[in-house]
């Protein structure tokens, strides 16, 4: 009996303390560590950014409580999105996006995710672009110097493309290119951008559509080279790689968005706080330098601009998926 009495006392006294601290009205700031859900595995592009954001916040004390990245890679982001959906109204949960948040609700309708009503978009920080990569000493792509050489070769031969997983961005992108350039390729899925890059250099695949950071190591060592960057302009991190606009293929434009969202049903005050926090991180020197060196595009977007952007991208991806199937 005495144990229970003691416990009851402890609980009552603790709850008194808690109530008194909650009831005071102040602008929002986190009351406990903030969970940052990553809808992908460790070591990928989204994971890299999430952990960078965590580090920058912690190092500079931008927030009163730490941010804790949690990987929920299951089901192409389906697990992470279901988790955040269930957390509606929770003020200590954020999710970083890859484009799989645009495709998974369409591809897996049984999850019952409503992209526009289950989340509160906060801000987009970065867009990552894609490049067409071949191995410098690729045995099937010998003699390929330009993107046009590559298309000619690919039309005649069934090349092998290494990718990050079925129905992921790069397979959709391959679907897009099929339509545009009239070639087909064998798609071999790996379990992440790093493995894809290695498969290319190891001679297992003939080309990949990878993010800059994922192929950076092999690019710098000269083991792989890029033929085209799918953006309107060249990127300072890859000065000699032409943009798709330069080559006359303005339809070949594709981005991976690195945005942050909160669960649905949070107060405007909370939304404002996190958007402000992300804004501080965005302008942090270290954050800027790291991402620019890595070939990423710094592209802040918030509020209605972000909502419009998401609506357009969601519709665009729906279209790509429809054409793909």
């Amino acid at each position: 009996m005495s144990i229970i009495k003691k416990l009851a006392l402890v609980i009552v006294s603790l709850s008194l303390v808690a109530v008194s601290s909650v009831s005071s009205a102040k602008p929002f700031s986190p009351k406990k560590p903030v969970e940052l859900i990553i809808p992908a595995g460790q070591g990928g592009g989204a994971d890299e950014i999430a952990r960078l954001v965590q580090g920058v916040i912690e190092k500079n004390d931008y927030a009163s409580k730490p941010v804790i990245p949690i990987n929920k890679a299951g089901g192409s982001g389906g697990e992470a999105m279901t988790y955040v959906k269930k957390k509606a109204g929770d003020e200590h949960t954020l999710i970083i996006t890859l484009n799989n948040v645009l495709t998974t609700p369409v591809n897996q309708p049984e999850l019952g995710i409503d992209f526009f009503n289950d989340f509160t978009p906060l801000a987009r920080l970065i867009t990552d672009t894609f490049l067409v990569w071949i191995a410098t000493e690729g045995k099937n792509t010998a003699g390929v110097e330009t993107f046009d050489d590559f298309i000619d070769l690919a039309r005649g031969n069934g090349l092998v493309m290494g990718g990050t997983g079925s129905m992921s961005e790069d397979e959709l992108l391959l679907g897009m290119m099929r339509g545009q350039f009239g070639f087909d390729a064998k798609y071999v899925p790996y379990s992440g951008g790093g493995a894809v890059a290695k498969g290319l250099v190891g001679g297992e695949s003939d080309f990949t559509l990878n993010n800059p950071s994922e192929q950076m190591g092999f690019y710098q060592s000269g083991d792989s080279k890029a033929l085209v960057m799918m953006t309107p302009e060249r990127n300072p991190a890859f000065p000699e790689v032409p943009s798709s606009y330069e080559l006359g293929y303005p339809d070949l434009e594709y981005y991976m968005m690195r945005a942050f969202m909160a669960p649905a049903g949070i107060d405007a005050e909370v939304e404002k706080y996190y958007t402000g926090l992300l804004h501080t991180v965005y302008h942090d020197n270290e954050f800027q330098t790291f991402n620019i060196d890595d070939g990423k595009l710094m592209s802040w977007l918030e509020g209605f601009g972000l909502k419009d952007f998401l609506a357009i991208e969601y519709a665009k991806h729906g279209e790509i998926i429809k054409n793909f199937n």
């Binding site: 609980i11 603790l14 709850s15 303390v17 808690a18 109530v19 601290s21 909650v22 009351k31 406990k32 560590p33 409580k65």
Partner: peptide, 9 residues
């Protein structure tokens, strides 16, 4: 959970 807010603070 609310009981732990002061602890985190």
């Amino acid at each position: 959970e609310p009981l732990f807010y002061p602890v985190y603070d």
